[in-house]
């Protein structure tokens, strides 16, 4: 299990408990956290689960895949700490993870 905090663009924070093996996207969607659309359900096909990983956590969330990198290249408001949250797998190492959400996923 890991505790993950999602901070909406408005500043509203949502803390959720998520099982190992789920993706960060699934943790948000299954807890009805607003601001992550995840149109494709985790197939890395839509770039609507974009998050900004808190700087302190960037090394622990691993490297972007080639597909993810190309998708992000064309997403709105991309920053160096941008990730597609469907590509970050939850493990005990990510207990305490903080991610921020962009203003819009579309």
């Amino acid at each position: 299990m890991a505790k993950i905090t999602f901070i909406e663009h408005s500043g509203a924070a949502h803390e959720v408990e998520a099982k190992d093996g789920l993706s960060v996207m699934e943790a948000a969607v299954k807890n009805n956290v607003p601001g992550i659309d995840a149109d494709c359900g985790g197939a890395c096909a839509c770039a609507t689960c974009h998050v900004y990983v808190d700087e302190a956590w960037v090394p622990k969330t691993g490297a972007k895949g080639a597909m993810e990198e190309s998708m992000l290249d064309f997403a709105e408001g991309v920053q160096p700490n941008s990730r597609l949250s469907c590509q970050i797998k939850i493990s005990a190492d990510l207990d305490g993870l903080v991610v921020r959400l962009p203003e819009s996923q579309h």
Partner: peptide, 10 residues
């Protein structure tokens, strides 16, 4: 070809 898709959609 994700870049082509994303840019095309835009």
């Amino acid at each position: 070809a994700p870049a082509e898709f994303m840019m095309g959609r835009q």
